[in-house]
Design a protein around this nucleic acid. Structure first.
Length: 172
DNA sequence: GCGGCGGCGCTTG
DNA sequence: CCAAGCGCCGCCG
C-alpha cells in the first residue's frame, strides 16, 4: 500500500503526505473515502461503509474513524449519523465537531431540524434528483422546488433518482 | 407519532 | 475467543 496524498482542506492548496501503512486495508479504505467529503458537506457513517464495499460494517467505520491518526486533515468530523444527528467525536466531543462543521460552512441548524423530523434527503423537482442535505446540488435550486424525503424509498416512489455527486443511495 | 433501548452487526486489539 | 467502538434498525411504551 502506498502512502496517501492528503489535501489540507483548510487552504485547499497545501499538500501533505502521510504514511498510512501501519493500518489495515479496511481502515485505509475508510480514511481514503473520508478524504473525498468536500469542505462544507457531511456524509453518514453508512455511506462510507457502502462506498468501500462493506455495507454492513457501519459500526466498524466508526471505530476506524475513532482511530484516525490525523484528525482534521483526514476530515472525520464530516462523518455524521445516518439520521442526521451529529454523532460522536473523539477530539473534543460532539461540541467540537459542531463548531468545526460550522466553521466549514455546514448549516447545522437546518441539518438538526431535518434530523428531528426524520428527514434525510432533499430533492429538486425540476431535476428529479435527490441528495444528502449538504450536497451543493440543492443550493442552487429555488426554495419552492426543494422536496424533503424521509428515506430513499420515499424518494424513489416520487420518481427521483440519487444524485451522482453525493450518491445518497447505491445505483440500481 | 416519537423518544428510548435492546440486539445486531463488523472489524480490531 | 472476547470485548470494545465516533452506529443502526426495529420494537415497544
Amino acid at each position: 500500500m502506498e502512502p496517501a496524498w492528503v489535501e489540507d482542506q483548510l487552504s485547499g492548496k497545501r499538500r501533505m503526505q502521510f504514511d498510512l501503512r501501519g493500518l489495515t486495508a479496511f481502515q485505509q479504505a475508510v480514511l481514503r473515502k473520508t478524504l473525498e467529503i468536500p469542505r462544507g458537506q457531511v456524509r453518514p457513517y453508512g455511506w462510507i461503509a457502502r462506498e468501500i464495499g462493506h455495507p454492513a460494517a457501519v459500526r466498524a467505520v466508526g471505530s476506524a474513524l475513532a482511530n484516525n491518526p490525523i484528525p482534521y486533515f483526514i476530515p472525520c468530523h464530516r462523518v455524521i449519523r445516518t439520521d442526521g444527528l451529529i454523532g460522536n467525536y473523539g477530539g473534543g466531543g460532539p461540541e467540537a465537531k459542531k463548531s468545526i462543521l460550522t466553521m466549514e460552512g455546514v448549516e447545522l441548524k437546518r441539518l438538526q431540524q431535518m434530523a428531528k423530523s426524520g428527514l434525510r434527503y432533499e430533492g429538486v423537482r425540476s431535476t428529479r434528483v435527490f441528495c444528502f442535505p449538504t450536497c451543493y446540488h440543492g443550493r442552487s435550486a429555488k426554495a419552492e422546488n426543494v422536496v424533503l424525503f424521509h428515506d430513499e424509498s420515499e424518494a424513489y416512489a416520487a420518481g427521483y433518482r440519487p444524485c451522482k455527486h453525493c450518491r445518497p443511495a447505491a445505483v440500481a
